[in-house]
Amino acid sequence: MFASLFVLLYVGHLLADYPFQTDHQAAHKADRCATGWAANVTHAATHVATCATALSIGAVALNDVALSLPVAFGALVWIGATHSFIDRRWPVAAWMRIARQAGWAAHGGAAHVDQTAHIAALAVAALCLSA
């Protein structure tokens, strides 16, 4: 069941991060002002909605997906909260500084670290959902 749940969450993540993310959200989700927080929270809510939809479809269409509503709710809160936190950008920048990745950061590495952090958070959610 873990693999099915992870794929469902990953598809929801890809949809929310790429075709469903507005230019405004992408440009402002890390800004330290009300506009930035609004863009960030709206983007994180899009992740929660797309992942909830993917999980719902999976629960109906796949034989190996059985969900507990309280655990699914907790997983969706986790997805929204971690996505919002990671997308503030400073956590990724701090990680890259600590890991001595300044050169990689200067050449586009932050986007890869960002996506890796998001996928790790999805893996935790899928593990919790399948336990």
Rank of each mutant, 00 (worst) to 15 (best):
residue 14 L to Y: 11
residue 21 Q to C: 00
residue 104 W to D: 13
residue 1 M to T: 12
residue 109 G to Y: 05
residue 115 Q to C: 06
residue 12 G to D: 01
residue 119 I to M: 10
residue 16 A to R: 00
residue 8 L to H: 02
residue 114 D to N: 08
residue 17 D to V: 00
residue 111 A to Q: 12
residue 39 A to W: 02
residue 128 C to N: 09
residue 18 Y to I: 13
residue 93 A to L: 12
residue 127 L to A: 15
residue 57 I to A: 11
residue 70 P to V: 04
residue 42 T to I: 12
residue 99 A to T: 10
residue 103 G to H: 10
residue 38 A to Y: 04
residue 53 T to G: 15
residue 29 K to R: 13
residue 48 V to E: 00
residue 71 V to M: 12
residue 31 D to C: 08
residue 53 T to Q: 09
residue 117 A to S: 14
residue 95 W to H: 13
residue 128 C to E: 07
residue 56 S to A: 15
residue 128 C to S: 14
residue 70 P to T: 04
residue 114 D to P: 05
residue 22 T to C: 04
residue 10 Y to Q: 13
residue 100 R to C: 10
residue 115 Q to S: 10
residue 78 W to L: 09
residue 41 V to L: 14
residue 100 R to N: 13
residue 47 H to E: 03
residue 74 G to H: 07
residue 49 A to I: 08
residue 47 H to V: 01
residue 74 G to N: 06
residue 56 S to T: 15
residue 6 F to G: 00
residue 12 G to R: 01
residue 21 Q to V: 00
residue 42 T to N: 11
residue 88 R to W: 09
residue 3 A to S: 14
residue 130 S to G: 07
residue 55 L to N: 03
residue 116 T to M: 13
residue 19 P to R: 13
residue 117 A to R: 09
residue 103 G to P: 07
residue 6 F to S: 01
residue 42 T to P: 02
residue 96 M to K: 11
residue 121 A to R: 06
residue 45 A to R: 04
residue 3 A to W: 10
residue 43 H to D: 02
residue 65 V to M: 05
residue 87 D to G: 08
residue 10 Y to K: 07
residue 24 H to V: 10
residue 9 L to Q: 02
residue 70 P to D: 03
residue 60 V to R: 11
residue 85 F to G: 04
residue 3 A to Q: 11
residue 46 T to G: 10
residue 50 T to V: 12
residue 30 A to T: 09
residue 1 M to H: 15
residue 33 C to E: 14
residue 42 T to S: 13
residue 99 A to G: 07
residue 119 I to L: 14
residue 114 D to F: 10
residue 106 A to W: 05
residue 26 A to I: 03
residue 131 A to N: 06
residue 11 V to E: 02
residue 80 G to T: 08
residue 59 A to P: 06
residue 103 G to I: 04
residue 120 A to N: 08
residue 31 D to S: 13
residue 62 L to F: 15
residue 74 G to Y: 09
residue 50 T to R: 02
residue 13 H to I: 00
residue 50 T to F: 08
residue 111 A to D: 12
residue 83 H to F: 06
residue 117 A to H: 08
residue 43 H to L: 02
residue 78 W to V: 01
residue 46 T to E: 00
residue 69 L to S: 13
residue 109 G to V: 05
residue 1 M to R: 12
residue 121 A to I: 06
residue 89 R to P: 05
residue 97 R to Q: 14
residue 79 I to G: 00
residue 13 H to T: 02
residue 75 A to Q: 03
residue 88 R to N: 09
residue 129 L to G: 03
